[in-house]
Design a protein around this nucleic acid. Structure first.
Length: 860
RNA sequence: GGGGGAGUAGCCCAAUGGCAGAGGCAAAGGACUUAAAAUCCUUCCAGUGCGGGUUCGAGUCCCGUCUCCCCUACCA
């Protein structure tokens, strides 16, 4: 692209510059308008309490999942979602909404801390540099964020309120300390939440994790399990995300029942144990029980002659990491304890009364009660185990009917389960019970770069904790992070905050000594409520103003990646419900509509052995196949995630440099439906770039005084289509409609009228705002483009006077009839008969006439 | 094993149950040009993974089946 010297004139001479330009110079245009938006605070949003705020207008809160500002900067996946929300935000402004469209930084987290450990650079320094980089990258894309509302979770003025919300949780009894077996990751030097451990490895870094008992802070999310489940129903969320949350909460109905352990001779030994089952009605078929190796009762009931074998098995199980357990998959192992359980449905002396108790690691201590009753006739896993160890299999099911089950015989499960629960409760043997997979949320980490807890532990004279806890007073918030220069865990495995000896010790007015909590909050804390802080980001007296919350909430559109389907979205819903119960927010759910944008993938190449080859080692042949440059070996093209190793990462800065931000935005939106994943295909970029160029050329013709009917019809079709598509987030088809219009205008070779130009600029603005602003300015439109009313379309201009209607016989196209557009049923049928003529000889059974659409004759 | 989603032209992708094609890429031809690039114009191509069903009419709805992607998994 040629740069003329005129382009270098300052922005305020823009009108003159535009006249000198002969080509679409995106660089000058984008720089100019980004500066203008910033200077004029175009996208600064007023809210309740602000002077000039118009409360009569409807509101629209459109939110992106705010990013973690990584050192790698933005990649082209980020703008896919951000472009979608920006298009919608800009569209809603044209529709007269007060639009809240903010951006911020989820900036606490591990990478900055690990970088600090390696280099000594303070995480705050790294974070600030990364944030500055992210901000300028986002601004280069021309997003209409209200930057005056920018927030950063690591800002003490922000985490002050994160701590304040924690206090509300604590005061409601939802935060507690517990010595729990937790996932400990040696490499990361911290504990992790269940959700952060996948197959025994850390989600971040994929390091091995082990279970270890430690004193930790927990949040009672389980208390909200039922509501978190039930309220999913009213949300406009993807089914997949709802399904994932449902599974994660894992509600299952069944019963708990109690078994008395006994020796081989039937004498009771040890305390009764409880099992959870979804099929208590299969108790007549229970032929053994299994306790998890970690179950506390195992030692107590093990018969002496089995003690050695049991000890060895338990030792093996504890050493086996969760990873190994998962890898061994279905290969079940177990050991007999030598003890028996009394099956209460059979009398003493009945050979079916005593059933052996085994221990096996396919039963997990972390689910249910850590003990199960086994019904090999009903459960596949139990059957497999029974077969392997030659345990009894007793039939209780015939098809879907119960058999050999006394009072349950002949019933289906919908009758037999309640019947059995009633019987159990009557006899004091068990109760109906709802069980959840959801565990309480492990809420503490052993990190520096996180929110400190507003917690003080009382110390006695000997320097020991008394167990009394007090909360930091509201006026003492924030509890700021102390300065450190060593971020590694301190001696004795204490978190890095334990190194800040001055910071830790607090002496109160009475001279009593307290020590600060040295754990910190997990990264999720800040993202649990950031959407509320955006409403009132500079409020120093409260987390948010209630009137502002009342006006803006809930979030109308929330866009982000599917990877947050359970973690962030479940935690945020939990906090929001707690805030709702505290009377601090007006709705029980924060995010009304959720959309997961698809992944932007990239091409990769695979050789004949299946090895992935970096993109820069591959060249294309003329016939469209690919080969390795050095060896000449032909490789297969496939779609993969972008990764440094494959060298197929696309940097948005490069795209902006070559084609401009408008082209990048347009391409991201044109790739396909916003929810679909698709590979970044550099060959498609010139297509959208050409569209912008053609648009530029159409406007280069200047403004015409005469209204051309073809252009006018095409424009009204375009207005209708783009508006409808934007309501449905059909960005790709909306762009196609604008291309259609520009193609028509290009062919007609006449200038647009001023009104036509204005309408088209408004349609274009959400997608390619810089170019739209320039054209708006060049055609001397009054008012401000960003808030110009969306044009309306004239239905009479949408269609021609006559249309061609397909005429079918038995659903097959046989002729066409040209009729007036507003042709009625009878006239249409007559015209159709005329078009078919002699083909209609024979019995006509039925005639289907759809005015404006088609005619179908059903013939014998 | 369970759950979610997708299969339409050489490729990406459109089609309130109503003529399979809006748009883009690629390809071919032409105009312009000394030439090339750019630009403009024109053209080419599938019957919708497969098998049934409902319907006057199915890419679209229902049943079955195959393939691919994502999530999840001894959850009792």
């Amino acid at each position: 692209m040629r740069i003329e010297s005129a382009f270098l004139l300052p922005a305020h001479d823009g009108l003159e510059v535009a006249k000198l330009m002969s080509e679409y110079d995106f660089k000058a245009i984008e720089a100019r308008w980004q500066a203008a938006w910033q200077e004029k605070n175009t996208f600064c949003t007023l809210g309740p309490g602000d002077a000039g705020f118009d409360a009569s207008k409807p509101k629209y809160y459109v939110l992106d999942m705010f990013p973690y500002p990584s050192g790698a900067g933005l990649h082209v996946g980020h703008p896919k979602g951000y472009t979608a929300t920006d298009i919608t935000a800009r569209y809603k402004r044209h529709r007269g909404f007060n639009v809240l469209h903010p951006m911020g930084w989820d900036a606490f987290g591990l990478p900055a801390e690990q970088y600090a450990i390696q280099t000594g650079t303070h995480p705050a320094v790294t974070t600030e540099a990364n944030v500055n980089n992210f901000r300028s990258q986002l601004q280069a894309l021309g997003f209409s964020y209200d930057w005056s509302r920018e927030i950063n979770t690591t800002d003490p003025n922000y985490y002050r309120w994160t701590q304040w919300i924690f206090k509300q949780l604590y005061n409601k009894g939802l935060a507690y300390q517990s010595e729990v077996p937790v996932w400990w990751c040696e490499q990361l030097g911290t504990v992790l939440a269940n959700e952060e451990v996948i197959n025994g490895r850390s989600e971040r870094g994929s390091f091995e994790c082990v279970k270890k008992p430690l004193r930790q802070w927990m949040l009672r999310i389980t208390q909200y399990a039922d509501r978190l489940l039930a309220d999913l129903q009213g949300l406009d969320w993807p089914d997949s995300v709802k399904a994932m949350q449902r599974e994660w909460i894992g509600r299952s109905e069944g019963a708990e029942l109690h078994f008395q352990p006994a020796c081989a001779d039937g004498t009771a030994v040890g305390a009764p144990f409880t099992v959870f089952t979804t099929r208590p009605d299969t108790l007549f078929g229970a032929t053994f029980c299994v306790l998890s190796p970690e179950h506390p009762l195992v030692d107590a009931i093990t018969a002496p002659e089995h003690a050695a074998a049991i000890a060895e098995y338990r030792e093996l199980a504890t050493r086996k990491s969760e990873l190994e357990r998962a890898e061994l998959q279905k290969d079940k192992t177990g050991v007999f304890t030598g003890a028996y359980a009394q099956n209460p449905v059979f009398p003493k002396g009945d050979p079916r009364h005593l059933i052996p108790i085994w221990t096996a690691d396919y039963v997990l201590m972390s689910y249910g009660t850590g003990a199960i009753m086994c019904v090999p006739d009903g459960d596949e896993r139990d059957r497999e185990f029974a077969c392997k160890y030659d345990l009894e299999i007793r039939q209780i099911l015939d098809g879907d009917k119960m058999v050999h089950s006394d009072f349950l015989n002949g019933m289906r499960k919908d009758e037999s389960i309640p019947a059995m629960i009633a019987w159990l409760e009557e006899n004091g043997l068990g109760t109906g019970k709802v069980n959840f997979r959801l565990r309480d949320w492990l809420f503490s980490r052993q990190r520096y770069w996180g929110e400190p807890f507003p917690i003080l532990h009382e110390m006695n004279a000997a320097g020991e904790r008394t167990g009394t806890i007090s909360l930091a007073a509201d006026e003492d918030l924030p509890v700021s992070l102390p300065e450190l220069d060593d971020f590694t865990p301190s001696a004795g495995g204490e978190p890095p905050l334990a190194r800040a000896t001055d910071w830790i010790t607090v002496v109160d007015q009475d001279g009593k000594t307290w020590k600060r909590e040295v754990n910190s909050m997990p990264q999720w804390a800040g993202s649990c409520w950031y959407y509320l802080r955006f409403l009132d980001p500079h409020n120093s007296g409260a987390a948010w103003d209630r009137a502002k919350e009342d006006y803006w909430m809930p979030v109308d559109l929330y866009v982000g990646g599917a990877e947050h389907a359970v973690l962030h979205l479940l935690y945020a819903r939990f906090w929001h419900k707690v805030l709702f119960d505290c009377g601090l927010v007006s709705h029980s759910e924060p995010f009304q509509k959720l959309v997961n944008q698809g992944m932007v993938q990239s091409f990769a190449f695979k050789d004949s052995r299946g090895v992935l080859i970096p993109v820069n080692e591959v060249e294309a042949k003329e016939d469209g196949t690919y080969f390795i440059r050095e060896s000449g070996e032909v490789v297969e093209q496939l779609t993969a995630k972008m990764s440094k190793a494959l060298r197929n990462v696309i940097n948005p800065d490069d795209v902006i440099r070559e084609y401009g931000a408008d082209t990048l935005r347009l391409y991201e939106a044109f790739m396909g439906p916003v929810t679909a994943s698709a590979p970044w295909n550099p060959r498609d970029l010139p297509g959208v770039f050409r569209f912008l160029q053609r648009t530029w050329r159409v406007f280069e013709r200047g403004i015409g005084s005469e209204e051309n009917v073809d252009i006018e019809c095409a424009l009204h079709r375009c207005i209708k289509k783009v508006g409808g598509d934007l309501e449905a987030m059909g960005y790709n088809t909306g762009i196609a409609a604008m291309m259609e219009f520009i193609n028509t205008a290009t062919k007609v070779k006449l200038p647009l009228t001023s009104a036509q130009a204005a309408s088209f600029c408004i349609l274009l603005e959400p997608f390619a705002p810089h170019l739209a602003e320039q054209l708006w300015c060049d055609t001397a439109q009054p008012s401000e483009l960003a808030f110009a009313s969306w044009p309306s379309f004239d239905p009479s201009k949408l269609v021609a006077d006559t249309i061609e209607i397909p005429v079918q016989i038995n659903g097959k196209l046989r002729a066409r009839a040209v009729v007036a557009t507003d042709c009625n049923r009878d006239d249409l049928e007559a015209a159709a008969r005329g078009a078919l003529a002699e083909l209609l000889e024979g019995e006509i059974r039925k005639v289907i006439v759809v005015p404006g659409r088609m005619v179908n004759f059903v013939m014998a």
